[in-house]
Amino acid sequence: MNIFARLNELDRRWIFLMIGLSVALPLMFPFSQPVKVSPHVQSVYDALEELPDGSLVLVSFEYGPSTMPEVRPMAKSLLNYLFAHNHKIIVTCLWPDGLFMSREILGEIAVDKYNLEYGADYINLGYKPGNEVVINAIASSFSVTFPVDTRGRTLASYPIMEGIENLTNIDMIFSLSAGFPGTVEWVQYAADPLGIPMSTGCTAVQVTEVVPYVESGQCRGILGGLSGAAEFEQLMVDMGEAEELGAANSGMAAQGVAHMVIVLFIVVGNLAFYVERRRQRKY
């Protein structure tokens, strides 16, 4: 059997091994490379920069453990930025996992790093089942939809909610999204009908679906996947908003090697296929 025939019949476990190594080895022996900031990431930053200090931003957590590697670095950079600019944050979760994701990251940024006061500087309203209908519900009332926050207290007992009746009182929405419900639903049920500026950080899978909304101005920029997160981290450092790069940048080496290996798979797979097909036609 010639080499191309063998390549055509390669056991998929060899492919698994190669892809595993292509991710594991760069993690063990990391190398850093400069990340270039793309226009869509720059748009997110520009949208944030337009907010006057002390604005009220709704950050919605719609991701879970499986998509944490992609979205968590964005969430971290975003919260760092928002808190550094004295913005007030209302957190909601359209995914049940978002409850735990938001709790964990708020603990790290709002409590440990900035030592902010819960209920005055930020509040976590938690999760509600109902998908896009939850957005529709808070478009008319926060306190009816969320009778209590994640600490079991009524919203009226917190200073941050003073005078805040519904979504129309929000200055900007930022959706940290990994699927349905997420960015698309925030555009459809909040940004478009109520005219609230919004931006998003989402998983790579969603990027192509969300781009039309970005191009039509319904959503201000997009942080797409791990590379979007890495670019946002880079931009934060470049603009003096952060001192060091974060988790997304440290994963980019492995991401890059794995992409190269997959491109190689496509090329070799096609080459083997064509050579073998020509050989078979010949005989």
Binding site: V23, P69, T203, A204, T208, G225, Q255, A258
Partner: peptide, 13 residues
């Protein structure tokens, strides 16, 4: 392309 990127990121995690 983006799906590949997403899946690799999850494995990375």
């Amino acid at each position: 392309g983006y799906t590949v990127m997403a899946r690799i990121s999850l494995l990375l995690g």
